[in-house]
Write a protein that binds this DNA or RNA. Structure first.
Lengths: 250, 250
DNA sequence: AACTATTTGTTCGTATGTATG
DNA sequence: GCATACATACGAACAAATAGT
């Protein structure tokens, strides 16, 4: 009925314990960003384990985004600033594994993005204004790689997310845009003909005017339009990219 | 101006290539959930690489939640269903690394949770109703471990997140509750005296009545109250757990 | 209960690749 | 070109856990 009365002495792998200790050291600031961890050999000596164990631990920390390793004379494991890329990758995995569907994604975007636009409208600065206008201009240009085109069309969303001043929202938007990109690229042969202009225009306009409510409304309208499009894509997407239920070739 | 004209032959590590191939195989359904991957030695033969490389790849896949390995005669690497736990861990890392602050978390919760409550109110079933009532009853009971107490008080949130039918929201709520737990446990010595009752009562009441708007409003009120409390905690929390700027013992 | 087979966990020794000075 | 320092990679061996006989 009660929990376990004693902790197991050593249930986890050595590499996990090493990874945990190194992670704690980094979080406690004992290794600062950009700083180099001791070499694998020295770590192996300090922890009194083999180098393989150290390597596996560094691999784990690398996967979580805490360190990145370089080889060569001045190489080693360097502490890196944790970014939202890990988050995006995690979301992408969940999406690819069918743990998140397109309508679900759409629903979240519909809730989050207008709110982000509203916040952004309250944080306008000349620098941000310039970036928004530039992004809008670039959208209009023709001629771009397909994947570049998608990136350019999501630039406004990224800037707004940055403007809203909430990194949680920012990470969320980045992740959602990444998933959207995944769907779009998998389904639409060429996006360059799509919504040739004016799509983000009204949103940016409202944001630049500092009108939060108008920005909210404009983004919401945009999200609904685009969401409808996304929904229609879903079947095509799942048909193309989800063999798990139809492979069964045996 | 253009991108690289040729792809590098092999820039990434062997273990990463192995991990990528195995991951794709899993995503394509060539290994189904619960199925066992070939043993490390066989994989090493098939990929024509060393066992260490295979091990590092399996470590990576394990960290991402795609496989879990067991030791022993019937052991090996088994494909596991991807869960939102990875997501929660990623968020936790970001939070511990000060990439997400308490006010930011609070802002997201304020947006998301009321919406989740509204959706939940539209998906009431007898089974969910029973679980909600049970969770509410358990909240009232005294005598619990501190950490258990926090878990019990967040149970209602988890159930509502499940009820809303959107796994993206569900994962988000789970992650946010985990971060909240982190803050609470770090700051409040004992939560058992807090809001002894009626906190979630009104929310659950509205949900069970199928009244989405009332559920939205009740949850929003709850979130605001609790958010204020959280904000007050932040300073205390950062003072206790954020030595990075004050360690500098050299 | 003891033995055996299988598989991961762990270590060591060694060789190779890569970047710096 | 050369020496140095480091990560990367391999092979062989043994330890530990687990299931079956």
């Amino acid at each position: 009925m009660a929990g376990p009365r004693f902790k197991p002495i050593r249930q986890s792998r050595i590499s996990e314990e090493v990874a945990e200790q190194l992670k704690q050291s980094i979080l406690l600031g004992q290794f600062k960003t950009g700083e180099k961890l001791p070499s694998e050999r020295k770590l192996a000596e300090e922890f009194e384990v083999s180098r393989v164990a150290i390597r596996e631990a560094l691999r784990t920390l690398g996967n979580s985004g805490f360190v990145s390793t370089r080889q060569g004379s001045a190489g080693g494991a360097f502490v890196t600033e944790l970014t939202f890329e890990q988050l995006t990758n995690t979301y992408l995995d969940l999406f690819l594994a069918n743990k998140i569907s397109v309508p679900e994604l759409y629903e979240v975007r519909l809730l989050v993005e207008p709110e982000v636009a509203r916040s952004a409208a309250q944080n306008v600065s000349s620098k941000y204004a310039g970036r928004l206008r530039a992004a809008l201009d670039v959208e209009e240009l023709p001629l771009a790689t397909l994947t570049d085109d998608v990136d350019r069309k999501s630039a406004v969303h990224f800037i707004l997310a940055e403007m809203c001043g909430n990194r949680f929202f920012e990470g969320l938007v980045r992740s959602m845009m990444r998933l959207t990109k995944q769907v779009v690229e998998a389904v639409i042969p060429d996006t360059r003909h799509m919504h040739p202009s004016g799509l983000h225009g009204r949103v940016v306009e409202a944001v630049l005017a500092g009108d939060g409510e108008a920005a909210f409304a404009a983004m919401r309208r945009h999200a609904i339009e685009f969401g409808d499009l996304l929904s229609k894509m879903e079947n095509a997407f799942r048909d193309k990219n989800s063999p798990p239920d139809k492979v069964r070739q045996k």
